[in-house]
Simulated assay, not measured.
Amino acid sequence: MFNKTNAWSLSFVLLMVSGCSNAVDKTLSPPSDAQWVNVEVKNPSPYTKPFPLEVRYISHECLKKRVSGFDGSTITEPSYNVVAIPMQQGAGEHWQGKVARNGGGACKWTLSAINLGIEYTDATHLGKDLVPGTAVGATIAFDDDASRNGQFTSVQGDLHISPKYYPYIREKKIDKIENTLSLLGKEDFLSLKAEAAAVIVFSPEIDESKITRFVGIKKKMKGVYPKIIYPDGSVAPDKTLFPDFNKVDGMSIK
């Protein structure tokens, strides 16, 4: 199910590979004295699973050149190296992985960012026609390069993250026959900068008693819009693009 992360990581991956025409040695070889980041994900449901850690390394030794699309000039910039590290199941619902801060190798790779999180692997318990949708989780930046878009919140020390999520069913009527089950959170992916973190613990909570639905339209018609239906049956105003997490979170469902 790792391919489910493609939707949320597209811009992340494009940044890594855009214009990369110079071959570099991406072999990782952490030294014997390398420091490690220990990652633990607590799987909250038998219907979900942590996806493999998506780890981004950066090299300021093996620089690459690309042609600017604006004026045709040549730009020299660092190289990027993205690897997937499978999570290993430990006791019960606890999954672990570890990432070397110093990736070593000929290019002296250093840790820049980690994507981690969970996704549904089985959706039929909430609808026989449902398939798993997109993943949720966190992007942890370890340097200024990874956090340069300014959207990252800086934190000190180790991380213990416990976001809450609710089921979000998307019923598409046009161009897509699959109905998907994803998770609705305050943010799909938290953006945190934690340069000093040696331990990251991600313990999400899922409350399946409150389900939000996106109901698409069968065909495009003037004045007809998709609907977002909240767990209490209320409908979001026309042209609303995303559900209001705080509204769902504050609802009392009898």
Rank of each mutant, 00 (worst) to 15 (best):
M1S: 15
N3Y: 11
N3I: 04
T5P: 02
L10E: 13
L14E: 08
G19S: 06
C20W: 06
S21G: 01
S21C: 05
N22E: 09
V24D: 01
T27L: 08
L28N: 02
S29A: 14
S32G: 04
W36H: 10
W36T: 06
V37T: 02
N38R: 02
N38A: 02
N38H: 10
V39C: 06
V39P: 12
E40C: 04
Y47V: 00
T48E: 11
F51V: 03
P52E: 11
E54H: 13
Y57M: 01
I58Q: 08
I58K: 01
E61T: 15
K64S: 03
K64D: 07
K65R: 15
K65E: 15
V67N: 00
G69P: 01
G69V: 10
D71G: 01
G72S: 14
S73E: 09
T76W: 08
E77G: 06
E77D: 13
E77V: 13
P78D: 03
S79A: 15
S79C: 15
S79Y: 12
Y80S: 12
Y80T: 07
N81T: 11
A84F: 14
A84N: 13
A84W: 05
I85H: 06
Q88M: 07
G92F: 11
E93A: 12
H94M: 12
H94D: 05
K98G: 00
G105K: 12
G105Q: 07
A106K: 14
W109I: 06
T110M: 04
N115W: 04
I118L: 05
Y120I: 01
D122A: 11
A123S: 13
T124F: 05
G127C: 02
K128Q: 14
V131C: 02
V131G: 05
P132W: 03
G133T: 00
G133K: 07
T134N: 11
A135P: 01
T139E: 10
T139Q: 13
I140Y: 00
I140N: 00
A141C: 11
Q151N: 11
F152H: 05
F152I: 03
T153Q: 12
V155L: 12
Q156P: 00
G157F: 05
G157L: 07
L159S: 05
I161S: 10
I161E: 11
I169D: 00
R170G: 05
K173Q: 14
I177D: 09
E178N: 11
T180G: 02
G185A: 06
G185R: 02
G185I: 03
K186L: 11
E187F: 07
L192P: 00
A196S: 15
A196Y: 00
V199M: 13
F202D: 10
D207A: 10
E208M: 09
I211K: 04
T212A: 09
R213N: 07
I217V: 15
K219W: 10
K220S: 14
K222V: 13
V224Q: 14
K227E: 15
K227T: 06
I229A: 10
I229V: 15
Y230P: 03
Y230N: 11
P231Q: 09
G233W: 10
G233S: 15
V235N: 13
V235W: 09
K239L: 09
T240E: 06
F242P: 00
P243Y: 03
P243L: 04
N246P: 05
N246S: 14
V248T: 08
V248H: 04
I253E: 08
I253P: 09
